[in-house]
């Protein structure tokens, strides 16, 4: 019975896939209409960055990016609402600890590079934030229960930093008559760099905190048996 249902669903979904493949084929065969690409590259010089993807993310469609930071924050708030973080992992041995001592600063350094290079080449706040998050994950795996994050009050400010700076820059521009997230001529580059720097820190901290998996400040005591599935209450 169960198998029959799976088979039936498979046949239906195969038909759906065939329909969608046909639709995609027909769509791609169309004469490419006035896509956004020409327009996006024609006005690239005014955006303050020379990497077109960064221009889309932080200038043309900056509003999307602001909300995306809010989505990330909402997920973390949801995780925090579920209880304190589980206990961390066993302390790593000397060889791994020495490796971690190298990798974590390198990841942070690489993150800084990614942030800067995003203005003119592939890179940017999300890639940089992901590297910072990776550094946090490595720290936690190596037995650092807080994953290198500060205490709860500071952590709370850090996770809202990205969306906060973004929204305040937008609101400030609105209040001074330019329109929400409409950068004044010539200042786009520095405002984007400011937003991206704040976003990098916030993304890195948020990803790490999400990996830690619970409210900071309690329940992160060591236990020698490795990962524990029970939360200290």
């Amino acid at each position: 019975m169960k198998r029959d249902l799976a088979l039936l669903l498979g046949i239906l979904l195969a038909l759906l896939a065939a329909l969608l493949l046909w639709a995609l084929h027909a769509t791609l065969a169309l004469e490419p209409g006035p896509r956004l690409a020409e327009l996006a590259s024609a006005r690239l010089e005014q955006t303050g960055v020379s990497n077109p993807v960064t221009a889309v993310l932080l200038n043309y469609r900056a509003y999307d990016t602001l909300l995306e930071l809010a989505v990330l924050l909402a997920a973390l708030l949801g995780i925090w609402s579920l209880g304190p973080a589980p206990a961390g992992y066993q302390r790593s041995g000397p060889a791994l600890a020495a490796l971690v001592d190298w990798i974590v600063p390198l990841a942070i350094l690489a993150g800084g590079y990614m942030l800067w290079v995003g203005g003119h080449a592939p890179g940017g706040a999300f890639q940089a934030g992901a590297l910072l998050g990776a550094a946090g994950v490595i720290l936690r795996l190596s037995g650092e229960p807080s994953a290198g994050l500060p205490g709860e009050p500071a952590q709370r400010w850090l996770v809202v930093l990205g969306a906060g700076v973004f929204a305040l820059v937008g609101g400030g521009l609105l209040a001074s008559g330019f329109g929400f997230l409409t950068y004044p001529p010539g200042q786009a580059k520095w405002l984007i760099l400011l937003i991206e720097s704040a976003a990098t820190v916030a993304i890195g901290v948020t990803l790490t905190a999400a990996y830690v998996g619970g409210r900071p400040g309690s329940g992160t005591a060591h236990n020698g048996t490795g990962q524990s599935r029970t939360v200290q209450r």
């Binding site: 956004l36 690409a37 077109p52 889309v56 999307d64």
Partner: peptide
């Protein structure tokens, strides 16, 4: 060069 808009949309979607 590729259209940067779908690339940016994918980055947003991944996050």
């Amino acid at each position: 060069p590729p259209d940067p808009v779908p690339h940016a949309l994918v980055l947003t979607g991944i996050v």
